[in-house]
Amino acid sequence: MKTLYTARALATGDGRDGQARTDDGKLAVDLASPAEMGGAGNGTNPEQLFAAGYAACFHSALRLVARRTKADVTGSSVRAEVDLGAIGNGAFGIAVRLEVSLPELGAAEAEELIEKAHQVCPYSNATRGNVDVQLSLATEEAAA
């Protein structure tokens, strides 16, 4: 791989109940375990950060393949949901659902574009074969 960019972040404190910041100071967040897991929920958590990153990265990949194919992605968006769960033997894993809204495209063209983006997106390539990633095309009601 030819490195194009390196992001650097430092987590301190008590892991899920600590702080995280990037070396350039552009991101600094308090971390807190979600209330659903018995935490206070007074900050963000790694799954939310992963969801935001994957959604943004996939949307960028979608726009890249759209430019290549001259597809109209006006008003497009990507919603990511990241599940955290036990996978046995005391280990944990994640699963991802990406819901893509492409209001200017028909279903067949939209689904083809989504699949192409899934092949290009760095997050998709990093998770492929290890994380269950489900892709779906948003309905008009869900995208609103």
Rank of each mutant, 00 (worst) to 15 (best):
S60R: 00
G38V: 08
M37S: 04
S60D: 11
V29P: 01
V29C: 12
K26M: 12
D23I: 02
R67A: 12
L31D: 07
N45H: 10
K26L: 15
V29N: 09
S33M: 14
R63H: 02
H59L: 14
A61E: 07
L49T: 03
L27K: 02
E47M: 05
A51G: 07
Y54Q: 00
C57R: 12
R63A: 13
N45R: 10
T44H: 03
A71H: 08
A55P: 01
N45S: 15
V65M: 07
A66S: 12
L31G: 06
A28N: 05
A28I: 01
P46T: 10
G43M: 15
R63K: 08
A55W: 07
L49H: 02
R68K: 10
A66V: 06
A51S: 03
H59M: 10
A35I: 06
A51T: 02
N45Q: 11
L49I: 13
A55M: 06
G38I: 08
D24K: 00
L49G: 04
D72S: 13
G39F: 12
S33C: 00
V73E: 10
K70W: 05
P46A: 08
E36W: 04
N42V: 03
G39P: 11
L27M: 14
L62K: 11
M37K: 06
D23M: 07
G43S: 14
A56H: 00
Q48Y: 02
L49M: 15
D24Q: 08
Q48I: 06
N45K: 14
L64W: 09
A40Y: 06
A52G: 03
